[in-house]
C-alpha cells in the first residue's frame, strides 16, 4: 500500500493505493460512513485483481477540509475533480454508504469518468414510510456507531484502533469530523435526490447491501435499482451490516471482482 497526497480545489486529499500489478485496471473506492482511517483487509482482497485507489472524501480520515463545501453540487464537483485528478479515467468506481451516494452522482454527472459502478448500500434516497435508522441521533459512546453500522462491531473497532504513538483524542475528533462531514450533505434523511438523476447512469452496475443492514432498508436499494438506466446486478451479503467492507471483506471483494471481470455485462 502506498500513501500519497493530491490537491483537489486547493485542498489536500490523501490517496491510498494498493495492488502489485501496474497493468491491472484501476478501481476507485469511496468509503462508507466514517471513512477508513487506514488500509483495511477488504482493500487487500480487492487489490488481488485491481489497482485499488482510495481517495479520502472531504472530512473523512485523510482529508480534514470539508467546511468549504456547502451544497451537494459542491460535493459532487469535488468528487468529479478528485477522479479527474487521479488521471486514471475511466475507472471502475466503487462507493459504499455515504461514499455510494457520491459515486452515483459522479456516474450521473460525469459518466465518461466511470467504467463500471459498484454501489454498496448507497445513501441518497429516503422513504418516510420505511425510514431506516437516524445515524445522527445515537446515544453517545464508543459502541453506538460500531453497533449500528456493523454486524461485527469489532471489525469497525479494529479499523479505528489508535496506532501506537497516536493520540486517542485525535482519533475521536477524526471520527466526529467524518460523521459531521457526512451530515453536511446527507442530513437529515440522506436523501440527496440522486434517484432523479440515475436515468443518466447507463453503466453496468452492481448494487449490493448487507443482509443485516440496520441503517438503510431494502427499499432504498430497490429505488436505486428501479431508476438506474444500465444493466444492474443486485446482491445481498449474508451476515453483513451496513458496511460490508468491514463485516465481510472476503465475500464483498469476491462479489465485486466477479462483477468487474464479467465480460457479459457489456
Amino acid at each position: 500500500m502506498r500513501e500519497t497526497t493530491i490537491s483537489v480545489g486547493g485542498h489536500p486529499v490523501r490517496v491510498l493505493t494498493g495492488g502489485d500489478n501496474p497493468s491491472a485496471p484501476p478501481a476507485v473506492f469511496f468509503a462508507g460512513i466514517g471513512g477508513v482511517p487506514t488500509w483495511v483487509p477488504f482493500l487487500d482482497r480487492l487489490a488481488e485483481s485491481r489497482r485499488v485507489i482510495v481517495p479520502s472524501l472531504p472530512g473523512f480520515p485523510g482529508a480534514a477540509d470539508f467546511r468549504h463545501l456547502d451544497t451537494l453540487l459542491d460535493w459532487v464537483v469535488h468528487c468529479v475533480e478528485t477522479v479527474e485528478a487521479l488521471d486514471e479515467a475511466p475507472v471502475d468506481l466503487i462507493g459504499s454508504s455515504a461514499g455510494g451516494a457520491l459515486a452515483a452522482e459522479v456516474a450521473a454527472i460525469a459518466g465518461s469518468l466511470v467504467n463500471r459502478l459498484v454501489l454498496i448500500a448507497p445513501f441518497g434516497s429516503h422513504d418516510t414510510e420505511d425510514p431506516g435508522a437516524d445515524i445522527w441521533a445515537q446515544v453517545p459512546g464508543p459502541d453506538s456507531i460500531p453497533n449500528l453500522v456493523c454486524e461485527r462491531p469489532e471489525a469497525w473497532k479494529h479499523a479505528w484502533q489508535v496506532p501506537e504513538g497516536a493520540e486517542a483524542i485525535d482519533y475521536q475528533v477524526m471520527h466526529t469530523r467524518a460523521m459531521e462531514a457526512a451530515a453536511r450533505y446527507l442530513f437529515p434523511f440522506g436523501d440527496t435526490g440522486v434517484v432523479s438523476r440515475l436515468h443518466r447512469v447507463d453503466h453496468p452496475t452492481l448494487l449490493l447491501r448487507g443482509s443485516e443492514d440496520r441503517v438503510l432498508p431494502t427499499s432504498s436499494n430497490e429505488r436505486f435499482c428501479a431508476a438506474l438506466a444500465g444493466p444492474v446486478r443486485t446482491g445481498e451479503l449474508e451476515g453483513a451490516g451496513h458496511l460490508p467492507e468491514l463485516d465481510t471483506p472476503d465475500d464483498l471483494a469476491r462479489e465485486i471482482n466477479a462483477f468487474l471481470a464479467d465480460q457479459e455485462l457489456g
Partner: peptide, 13 residues
C-alpha cells in the same frame, strides 16, 4: 433521551 444530545457537528472540534 441521550440520543438527542450530541449530533456530530453540533460541537466544535
Amino acid at each position: 433521551n441521550p440520543k438527542w444530545a450530541s449530533p456530530a457537528g453540533y460541537q466544535s472540534e
